[in-house]
């Protein structure tokens, strides 16, 4: 299957400070050599915590941010759409729902009001909302309903790929379940490719085919969800999986690890995770390469 979208060795650096002549003196290294590919009908999960470069990755994928180096591949003809995290902020409070939902359409082609309203009604029905609510405003809907509106908007441009940027992290569990069910049903029906960006291990495990675990702008582990979660090879992936609170496993007794991220201004010379790594040993001071085992399971650790 051909890749719907992909990144090849993408780096993104932001200038943080300049000297008096305008030359960049300090840079933030947001992405440090990221390569991914998503095929049609498949879902790639990007798993990571704050500061790992997830949001920068979303901006590069959606074309909002050009990579400092590296390439974005695949079909880029406006076939990419997005659903954002906060359904309060992602819908314009001053627009009626029919304008919100059809914005990706009328931005490019002036369309008659009646046609747009009809289209909006269809889209609302698609995402499980009442089609006669097209004239309402965002504040008249609950958080889950607003996220459905955001999904309807993402669908209106008939995309091949939808970037889902933490689509359920502002929602309650019971509502999260509704939204994930809806997205899976839409994918099955329309053959969409998804990139799901999330910090939620359980959501990624449930929802994705493949996963890329990110740390400090790098992918540290990548592979099918089954293999990565059943047999996490990178120490960071293990730390992350262990940290998720579980129900019914009893009282917590944990060692206290270092949790501070290294600065992304000057990157560590060796492995980015070594200052927090329980397995750190000789060899970690050298840069680590993302290298493969069986079945496309890639790990960036010489000790794995």
């Amino acid at each position: 299957m051909s890749a719907a979208i992909g990144l090849e060795d993408v780096f993104v650096r932001f200038p943080v400070a300049r000297d008096w002549r305008g030359r960049v003196t300090v840079q933030a290294h947001a992405l440090n050599g990221v390569s991914i590919a998503v095929a049609r009908g498949r879902t790639l999960g990007i798993l990571g915590e704050s500061g790992c470069g997830k949001s920068t990755l979303a901006q590069v994928l959606t074309g909002l941010l050009p990579p400092s180096s590296g390439r974005v591949t695949g079909d880029r003809d406006g076939r990419i759409s997005i659903v954002l995290q906060d359904p309060n902020s992602s819908l314009d409070p001053r627009m009626p729902v029919w304008r919100i939902v059809t914005e990706p359409v009328f931005l490019h082609a002036p369309t008659r009001r009646e046609a747009l309203r009809a289209m909006a009604a269809d889209l609302l029905e698609c995402v499980g909302l009442r089609p006669d609510h097209v004239d309402r405003y965002p504040h008249e809907f609950s958080g889950g309903q607003r996220q459905r509106i955001a999904i309807a908007r993402a669908l209106s441009s008939k995309p091949d790929i939808i970037i889902l940027d933490e689509p359920t992290s502002a929602l309650d569990v019971s509502v999260q379940a509704q939204i994930l069910n809806l997205l899976l049903a839409l994918q099955a029906e329309l053959g969409l490719a998804f990139v799901l960006i999330s910090h939620n291990v359980a959501v990624i495990r449930h929802f994705c085919d493949e996963v890329a675990v990110m740390y400090l702008g790098q992918i540290v582990e990548q592979g099918s969800v089954d293999t990565v979660f059943a047999d996490p090879a990178h120490p960071y992936t293990r730390t992350l999986l262990d940290a998720v609170p579980r129900i019914g496993t009893g009282r917590a007794h944990h060692a206290l690890d270092e949790t501070e991220l290294p600065s992304n201004r000057t990157l560590p010379t060796g492995c980015f995770f070594q200052n927090r790594c329980p397995m750190a040993a000789a060899g970690c001071e050298r840069p680590q390469i993302l290298s493969g085992g069986a079945g496309g399971h890639l790990v960036r650790c010489h000790r794995a």
Binding site: T62, S81, I82, L84, S90, L91
Partner: peptide, 8 residues
Amino acid sequence: GYVMAARV
């Protein structure tokens, strides 16, 4: 978010 979405 709605401005970011519009740009996308």
